[in-house]
Write a protein that binds this DNA or RNA. Structure first.
Lengths: 144, 144
DNA sequence: GCATCAAGTTACCATCAGATACCAACCGGG
DNA sequence: CCCGGTTGGTATCTGATGGTAACTTGATGC
């Protein structure tokens, strides 16, 4: 009855909880972009994904896709066509994840300007403090 | 009207877009846990965070907090108490981010079992294919 | 004088991400 | 016939990154 129907107190704040590893996998730049694309565009081929996600390397793409497939978030379908074709698609489980990942990408696109402003202000304050503290490097100690 | 209220075509799928770096920072295990904790518990001190987030090292905590402060997502307040006390709190901007990060942690806690099942199935299929390269192998269709 | 707590920093090492090159099958052109 | 181009990867090398543990600073207490 209560074998696995109930969440058994999974806690991402516990070091050894599998949730920690899961979070590490899903809270990932490439995962956000890949799942977001697959969910919005539908099934895609390997090189199609690679072209759409500018700047991703084959290694990271294939590696991330393999992880996602292993965790049941995407499916991989091979077509024995002329040059072999491989199609990736999100699973229902992956779709539920994508629904929480897409807002993350949207947040980034929406608030990146504010972050850049904050960063510039922080750096300016730091440069100022650095310059007025001393014009030269006083802490020139030998490496112990 | 549209001085900076309008997003100027930021695109996380473009390799050089700052959104990519922003996404890399916010789509991070420790960022999810730190912001989630600060938003739910309120301002916290350094070692308090360290104790609550089991398994995080001082290095990663201070590093992540410094990034978050630089990007205007948390504030750092130093109290000149007996042993110096430092309090971290989320900014309004950080709070908006936390609202999209918390569901991510919740998703992980909710669906980790399904992921573990999928992973076990995937690994079993792989081990099977690896150990027995004969007979009634279902994944032996490609005949490579 | 020594240990202790707070909040870090630093050194060191294992792992990882990124760039590049290569592979295998197939096809079209010269 | 050989060259280059397509698909979907793997292999290699290197610089960046994450984790572990030790050291720092500064006051407090025994």
């Amino acid at each position: 009855m209560d074998r696995d129907s109930m969440a058994k107190d999974w806690d991402a704040y516990a070091a050894t909880c599998p949730t920690r590893q899961a979070l590490d996998r899903i809270a990932d730049k490439w995962t956000v972009l890949i799942l977001g694309l697959l969910v919005e565009t539908g099934p895609m081929r390997f090189n199609q994904l690679r072209r759409e996600i500018a700047g991703i390397s084959q290694k990271m793409l294939s590696q991330t896709l393999k992880s996602l497939e292993r965790d049941g978030l995407v499916t991989r379908k091979v077509f024995a066509t002329v040059p072999v074709t491989v199609e990736y698609a999100v699973t229902p489980l992956g779709a539920t994840l994508a629904q929480t990942l897409v807002p993350l990408r949207v947040w980034a696109e929406t608030h990146v300007e504010r972050m850049l402003q904050a960063r510039a202000a922080y750096d300016a304050a730091h440069d100022e403090a650095h310059e007025r503290a001393d014009g030269n490097a006083p802490a020139r100690l030998d490496a112990a």
